[in-house]
């Protein structure tokens, strides 16, 4: 694997790519230059720090330290999913529960099946992949729910007026949110190998691993992400939809109601 060497000079040259993206952004007046610069700086700092942290964790190989790292990943993923919730009450706790459950169940199954070993070099990166995919899925699901509860307010009111319970009144919205959350993972599972050569597989091939072995890992990752995003989206959506209602089984005012 030692044929994979990116020197600091090579990385510095890679900055030219960022400059190209910035130039396009400025010329087309897209207005994302500040976010791009912040993103690049954060990526460099975060990845450098995590590189050193991972090196340390892998070297000392302690269960508690690996667990702590996984917990930090899950916590940060929940914080980010919460930002997409746009005011859904208790969205952080819901996201934390959903991402933690999705990550832990998936990892447990992989460890029990013998697909991965409980070593920091395997558990930490895999947790990161699972948590980040669950985070994106949950974020999309929240956005879908917010939009649907706003746009379909009248339909929900009518269902409630007919005597539906909260689950019956929200079923179509929850189903749509779960579909929306899982769509990228399903699309990527459908096109993997045809359109995209995913990061993990590419990374392994890049680092000199036999492509057939890299592909087996990628198949495992695809299955793992499908499970994780579905577990995460389902838990988050089913915990979040009651938050759109008050204790009298009425739609809360947070989506804008008016009386006359």
């Amino acid at each position: 694997m030692n044929n994979l060497i990116v020197s600091p000079t090579a990385l510095a040259f890679a900055v030219i790519l960022v400059v190209i993206a910035l130039a396009i952004n400025l010329k087309e007046k897209i207005g994302l230059e500040r976010d791009m610069i912040i993103g690049v700086i954060r990526a460099v700092i975060q990845l450098t720090v995590v590189g050193y942290v991972l090196t340390y964790i892998i070297r000392v190989n302690r269960v508690w330290l690996t667990g702590l790292m996984v917990a930090i990943i899950i916590f940060n993923a929940a914080l980010n999913a919460n930002k997409r919730a746009n005011g859904i009450p208790h969205a952080f706790v819901i996201s934390l529960l959903a991402i933690a459950t999705a990550t832990l169940i998936t990892i447990l199954l992989l460890v029990v099946a013998g697909a991965v070993r409980f070593t920091p070099s395997q558990i930490v990166p895999i947790s990161g992949m699972i948590a980040s995919n669950a985070m994106v899925a949950i974020g999309l699901a929240y956005r879908s729910m917010n939009t649907s509860f706003h746009d379909q307010r009248q339909g929900v009111l009518e269902r409630l007026a007919l005597g539906a319970n909260l689950k019956q009144a929200s079923k179509h919205i929850v189903q749509m949110a779960i579909r929306t959350g899982m769509a990228p993972t399903i699309d990527s599972a459908k096109t993997v190998g045809i359109v995209s050569l995913p990061g993990m597989m590419s990374g392994l091939i890049f680092a000199g691993v036999d492509p057939t072995k890299a592909i087996m890992y990628q198949i495992m990752v695809t299955f793992m992400l499908l499970a994780a995003t579905s577990i995460g989206s389902v838990i988050a959506c089913y915990l979040a939809y009651p938050r759109y209602y008050n204790s009298d089984m009425q739609l809360s005012d947070r989506n804008g109601s008016k009386q006359q």
């Binding site: 339909g155 009518e158 409630l160 007026a161 005597g163 319970n165 009298d248």
Partner: peptide
């Protein structure tokens, strides 16, 4: 009113909207 479970009550006291929305 508050002592009834809401779905039970609303199935007995049926409200029709001025501009109803059909769903599905």
């Amino acid at each position: 009113q508050s002592t009834y479970p809401k779905p039970v009550y609303r199935q007995q006291v049926s409200y029709c909207f001025q501009q109803p929305t059909l769903f599905g």
